[in-house]
């Protein structure tokens, strides 16, 4: 007699011990970017080439600042999720693991620098 339900038996399993977690999170960040890409990229294209004061004023605005931070954080996450799959497909063994760790650290650094810059611009420091 089996006491465990099917759900209980598969929970937390899979080769990566996270089931469909990676797949699901990557789709979530993709859906977020459906909104964030147009909201960030089009104003960015509009401002590119303008002077310091104009661009600074544009990103001091709370709406633009929050969009920019959300964009950097989500791009960082989505990039890592994608590049992790690419590395797992093409680079095996210890080198693959080192590359994944390096990409995780670099993408986190990317998000932190982006958020720091926008917060500093927004707070006028």
């Amino acid at each position: 007699m089996r006491f465990l339900t099917d759900r209980k038996r598969v929970e937390g399993l899979g080769s990566a011990k996270q089931g469909t977690g990676h797949f699901w999170e990557q789709r979530l960040s993709a859906i977020a970017l459906l909104f964030l890409v147009p909201l960030f990229v089009l104003p960015f294209a509009y401002n590119l080439g303008d002077g310091y004061e104009e661009v600074r004023a544009a990103y001091a605005h709370p709406v633009n600042a929050v969009i920019a931070i959300a964009f950097f954080v989500t791009v960082s996450l989505h990039f890592f999720q994608g590049v992790q799959v690419v590395i797992e497909d093409y680079v095996h063994g210890r080198l693959g693991m080192i590359l994944i760790i390096a990409m995780r650290l670099l993408s986190t650094l990317f998000a932190l620098i982006g958020a720091y810059a926008v917060i500093r611009i927004s707070l006028g420091a």
Binding site: F44, Y52, V55, R56, Y59, A68, F72, F110, I113, G114, Y116, A117, V118, R120, I121, A125
Partner: peptide
């Protein structure tokens, strides 16, 4: 990366 560098410079 170029975009974040641009923002860091702006800050």
């Amino acid at each position: 990366i170029l975009i974040v560098w641009y923002f860091l410079a702006l800050a």
